[in-house]
């Protein structure tokens, strides 16, 4: 499990990819991936394509990200696997976040 940070060439987007299991153990690295990187640009992508599963603390972390970003940028959850999508839907996160499959 790990978090990978990437900034787009034009600097307008950052992408945070969560690989493996997304749970409370990733808290420090997930938070660091957007709060310690300076300007977050206009869009924050959370790449969930390699996320095996996600639990309720991961949902809490996404809400923290949302709070941190505020209106400054748009958050896009990208390519969740069907199981991760299920958790997002259960928690009504499809209404709180833009999700792109």
């Amino acid at each position: 499990m790990s978090v990978i940070f990437e900034r787009s060439e034009n600097g307008e987007e950052i992408t945070v990819s969560v690989e493996g299991r997304f749970d409370y153990r990733l808290y420090e690295s997930f938070k660091a991936s957007y709060s310690d990187v300076g300007d977050i640009g206009r869009q924050v992508n959370v790449d969930l394509s390699s996320t095996e599963y996600m639990d309720s603390s991961a949902l809490g972390m996404l809400l923290m990200l949302r709070e941190h970003v505020g209106r400054a940028a748009k958050i896009l959850l990208k390519n969740p696997t069907p199981d991760v999508m299920r958790v997002l839907t259960i928690a009504n996160f499809d209404k709180l976040f833009a999700i792109e499959s």
Binding site: R21, D23, E52, Y53, M54, D55, S56, T81, D83, V87
Partner: peptide, 8 residues
């Protein structure tokens, strides 16, 4: 995956 989520 579902078992992981349930146990978690």
């Amino acid at each position: 995956p579902v078992l992981y989520m349930i146990f978690s």
